[in-house]
Computed example of a mutant assay.
Amino acid sequence: MILDITAPDLAVLIGRHGRTLESLQTLVSLLVSRKLGFRYPVSIDVEGYKGRRHDKVIGMAKSAAARAVAQGRTVNLPPMSAYERRLVHIALRDDDRIDTHSEGVDPERRVVITLR
């Protein structure tokens, strides 16, 4: 199930770094799953936030990888959700010049880009 919510001034539903939106999605998913009696995936987006964030995370990953190669050093990305970290790993998996791994403990877990 995909819910795409649009209306003026819904930033409060997104919250800082999308955390409120993630929590809302988790709650709705739990309610739907409990009502149906089985796990049913629910995706909620507000004003296209997830699409914009997806593009921003991919851009950040590619920029950080280029910086790591150009400067010859390890680059730490800011803390991200598990979903966003996964996006980074997928975006950079075909780059033979670098490796990625996650370090830290949630909510401060981050992707680290290292040279091969």
Score class of each variant (00 low, 15 high):
Ala61Met: 02
Met80Cys: 01
Arg19Phe: 12
Val32Thr: 01
Asp55Val: 09
Lys62Phe: 00
Gly51Phe: 00
Ala65Tyr: 05
Gly48Phe: 04
Asp55Tyr: 02
Ala65Lys: 01
Arg86Met: 07
Ala65Gln: 01
Thr74Asp: 09
Lys50Gly: 08
Leu27Asn: 05
Lys50Asn: 07
Met60Leu: 14
Pro78Ala: 06
Lys62Arg: 13
Thr26Asn: 07
Pro41Ala: 10
Arg52Leu: 06
Lys62Trp: 09
Gly51Tyr: 08
Asp45Trp: 07
Gly72Lys: 01
Lys56Asp: 11
Glu22Gly: 07
Leu31Glu: 06
Leu24Val: 12
Val69Tyr: 07
Arg73Glu: 14
Tyr49Arg: 09
Lys35Arg: 15
Val46Leu: 07
Ser23Trp: 09
Leu77Tyr: 08
Met60Cys: 06
Gln25Asn: 14
Leu30Glu: 11
Lys35Thr: 15
Thr74Met: 08
Gly37Lys: 09
Arg34His: 09
Leu21Trp: 11
Val28Lys: 04
Gly51Met: 06
Ala82Met: 00
Thr20Glu: 12
Phe38Pro: 00
Ala61Val: 04
Ala70Tyr: 05
Val69Leu: 10
His54Gly: 04
Val42Asn: 00
Arg52Thr: 05
Arg86Ala: 01
Leu27Trp: 02
Arg19Val: 14
Pro41Tyr: 13
Asn76Val: 00
Ser81Tyr: 00
Pro41Cys: 00
Arg39Glu: 04
Val57Thr: 06
Arg67Asn: 11
Leu30Ala: 14
Gly37Glu: 04
Tyr83Asp: 07
Asn76Lys: 11
Arg86Lys: 09
Lys62Asn: 12
Leu27Ser: 13
Phe38Cys: 11
Arg85Ser: 00
Glu47His: 12
Tyr83Lys: 02
His54Trp: 07
Arg85Trp: 05
Tyr83His: 11
Ser63Trp: 03
Arg85Ala: 04
Asp45Phe: 13
Gly51His: 05
Pro78Gly: 08
Ser29Phe: 01
Arg39Cys: 01
Leu31Gly: 14
Val57Tyr: 00
Leu31Met: 15
Gln71Tyr: 10
Asn76Glu: 15
Gly48Met: 03
Ala70His: 10
Met60Val: 07
Gly37Thr: 04
Lys35Val: 07
Thr20Cys: 09
Gly51Asp: 15
Ala64Cys: 03
Ser43Glu: 12
Asp55Thr: 13
Pro78Ser: 02
Ser43Gln: 10
Ser33His: 08
Arg73Gln: 14
Ser81Trp: 02
Leu24Asp: 08
Arg67Trp: 00
Val69Arg: 09
Thr20Arg: 13
Glu47Gln: 12
Gly48Val: 04
Ser33Thr: 09
Gln71Ser: 07
Ser29Met: 11
Leu21Thr: 09
His54Asn: 15
Gly72Met: 06
Tyr49Cys: 06
Pro78Met: 02
Ala82Val: 10
Val42Cys: 03
Gln71Val: 10
Ile44Met: 04
Val42Ile: 14
Val46His: 04
Lys62Ala: 03
Arg53Thr: 03
Lys35Leu: 05
Lys50Ser: 10
Tyr40Leu: 13
Gln71Arg: 15
Arg73Cys: 05
